[in-house]
Amino acid sequence: MALAYSYACRDCEGMETCPASVTAATKEELWKLTELHAEIAHGEIPADWDPETRAYLETLVREVRV
């Protein structure tokens, strides 16, 4: 089994009704997919996320076996 990383938008405070989740082989890929989702689905600008927001989102990333 390989190790991958997963993020579920519904785990983020205020996003409980969002069904989106992403899984990727690397954290770098996961961040790109998460940022793209935030931009398209929620109208956010990930470049504007402050370090505290990124640190909070990092706590929501889970390691998964695939």
Rank of each mutant, 00 (worst) to 15 (best):
E44H: 05
Y7M: 09
T26A: 10
M15I: 04
R62A: 14
L30Y: 06
A8V: 06
D50G: 14
V61D: 04
E58Q: 15
Y56A: 11
E28H: 08
H42V: 12
A24M: 10
R10D: 07
A4W: 04
L33R: 03
T53E: 13
D50A: 06
G43S: 09
E63V: 12
D48R: 11
R62Y: 12
L33C: 06
L57P: 01
K27I: 08
R10A: 07
L57N: 10
D11C: 00
I40K: 11
D50C: 06
W31G: 01
W31P: 00
A24F: 02
A47Y: 07
A38E: 05
L33V: 07
M1A: 13
Y5W: 13
I45F: 13
E39S: 14
D48F: 09
W31Y: 06
A24K: 01
A47R: 14
A55K: 15
S6E: 12
S21Q: 09
L57S: 09
I40Y: 11
C18G: 09
R54Q: 11
V66C: 13
Y7L: 10
A20G: 13
E16D: 03
A55W: 11
E52P: 00
A20Y: 13
T26L: 06
T53V: 13
R54C: 10
L30W: 00
I45P: 05
K27W: 06
E28K: 08
A47M: 12
T23V: 13
V61T: 12
W31K: 01
A20P: 13
M15G: 00
R62G: 15
E13T: 00
C9I: 00
